[in-house]
């Protein structure tokens, strides 16, 4: 089980990372988006997950929180875009634990990650992770 006292906490903001044209092109190609005329030059709609999920994954480094990434399934995802994000922009991510709900020993962990560039907030990403209960064997080992 996750440590519910972490609700409301934010992880330290990540260092700025430049969104490179190469990483965007690779992501677009993997979804078959490379042939689509991108009128605005914005990154693919789900591209920010490549930054927001690793930012949140740092929670596994905190043993007091109790998150085992091998037990995690992605359940819900939402993005809100305040401005279009283009390659060449440098952004930071700030992840906040919004809620933890426990159902039959499994946890639903909801996180919000704010994505900001030099001018402020550009997008928000909400991720809910299903975290399976530890098995008995794992419980004994722990």
């Amino acid at each position: 089980m996750l440590n519910a006292s972490y609700v409301g906490r934010s992880l330290p903001t990540t260092d700025p990372v430049e969104i490179t044209a190469e990483s965007v092109a690779r992501f677009a190609a993997a979804l078959g988006l490379s042939g689509v005329p991108a009128a605005s030059g914005a990154v693919p709609p789900t591209y920010l997950i490549t930054l927001t999920l690793p930012a949140a994954e740092r929670l596994v480094d905190d043993p007091d929180f109790g998150l085992d990434w091998s037990k995690v399934l992605h359940r819900d995802q939402r993005f809100a875009y305040h401005r279009e994000v283009r390659p060449g922009t440098s952004v930071t991510c700030t992840s906040t634990i919004e809620s933890i709900k426990t159902v039959a020993g499994n946890d639903l962990l909801s996180l919000r990650t704010d994505v900001a560039d030099a001018d402020g907030l550009v997008a928000e990403s909400w991720t809910t992770l299903f975290v399976a209960a530890a098995t008995d064997a794992a419980g004994e080992a722990a």
């Binding site: 979804l31 988006l33 689509v36 991108a38 009128a39 693919p44 709609p45 789900t46 995802q77």
Partner: peptide, 19 residues
Amino acid sequence: AHGMFTMGLVSRAVVEWVA
């Protein structure tokens, strides 16, 4: 499939339709 792969395919369908 990664959930985000499926969501990515949906985004592709939307982007193609908009174009």
